[in-house]
Design a protein around this nucleic acid. Structure first.
Lengths: 218, 218
DNA sequence: CTATACACGTGACCC
DNA sequence: TGGGTCACGTGTATA
């Protein structure tokens, strides 16, 4: 009895790291069950007890796997204790709850702010996070999500001209899509150039942008 | 031996509900340890084994309490299984992670939106959620957040002129700061106006922006 | 009757 | 050399 048990006397975490080996060593368990089956058919311990043993082993193993997985999704794990893992998970969830609460109040405030300043703003189209989550919650207690829609800049024409020794002129033509102008500005801002003057003209769905740039970088 | 054990043969959840009563019935355990101590000092099971028994009992109890607490902070608990509780907790944490990511992008967008429309807005004073969470992070390796660095638009001059019955000219002068041009563009994009032509000129740290707008909204 | 899930006592391990 | 933790086998109650 004892020598059989000693095969499994590892620390539980080491057990987790050697799961495959454990699966191999499970062959011993079948030997064990056979041992139980053939030895004593009279006692109340032989016929179904071996089944219960392997069942219980599987249950423990599954529980440990879950616990290990739980540890992996929780940052700031203080100790490797089973109890400590659960404790850390609880604290982490509570922290996320609080943060979520604050951040949702934040969003509601910001939305009303935007709505006041611009009553024609279309939240359904551009910022559907809270609305969608409310919808889903009524349908089922499930968790919400959303996907931001981003159109790329479609450049139709790009021409760079050097005027004199310190000035560059950039001529750009592209299709007008949502936020296209914003993205263009972001590109030129990120280049940290010294823009002398810029002109943007919109005509029938096309953006024309002409930029004068001083060559001397800062 | 058996009659003592029968006191504890409840389902684990019922055990949790009757914790206080269990604490009372622990008087029986002390009687148990005494029984072990006084009965057989010769066998290898008496002296330290009873200590281990009560220790192990406490450990199991603590673990179940933690598990019960974990269940209480996780909504949408499918089954009461120990393993299922941990599984639901894992899925819930993963969901919260994803939601947090999305909602933070959302807030950044809204903040810039508000900032555009009301350049003198003070995020530090009125909406310190993200900033506060960041403070916590510097103090310890705690859970993460972020802070968008946003300079407000400093408007020096704003003049709106009506030209004819369908055209508006907006003249704007403001200081040049980081992303000022981007924010200006975002403001005018969000207003969903029909911009005919726009001109931006930079001169000694000041932005001059002139915009021709057709009045007819889409 | 057979699974499934649990609490229990026990020996072994490590700090 | 204990206090703390673990895996194991077992009896038992629920579905």
């Amino acid at each position: 009895m004892d020598n059989i048990g000693e095969e499994y006397k590892h620390y539980w975490e080491t057990n987790m790291f050697l799961q495959t080996q454990e699966l191999d060593s499970w062959g011993l368990d079948e030997a064990l069950s056979v041992y139980y089956d053939s030895s004593s058919p009279d006692g109340p311990t032989s016929p179904a007890t071996s089944k219960n043993i392997v069942s219980e082993r599987n249950r423990r193993k599954k529980l440990n796997e879950r616990l290990f997985a739980l540890r992996s999704v929780v940052p700031k794990i203080s100790k490797m204790d089973k109890a400590s893992i659960i404790k850390d998970a609880i604290e982490y969830i509570q922290h996320l709850h609080e943060e979520e609460k604050n951040i949702k109040a934040e969003i509601m405030e910001l939305e009303s702010e935007v709505l006041m300043m611009n009553p024609n703003y279309d939240f359904e189209q551009e910022l559907p996070v809270l609305l969608k989550s409310k919808k889903k919650k009524t349908e089922q207690q499930l968790y919400d999500s959303f996907t931001p829609i981003n159109f790329p800049i479609e450049i139709l024409e790009l021409r760079v001209t050097y005027m004199g020794e310190k000035t560059i002129v950039v001529n750009l033509k592209c299709n007008k899509r949502t936020n296209t102008m914003v993205k263009l500005c972001e590109v030129f801002e990120s280049l940290k150039l010294k823009v002398i003057t810029a002109n943007i003209t919109s005509f029938s769905g096309t953006l024309f942008k002409t930029i004068f740039i001083e060559v001397s970088f800062l």
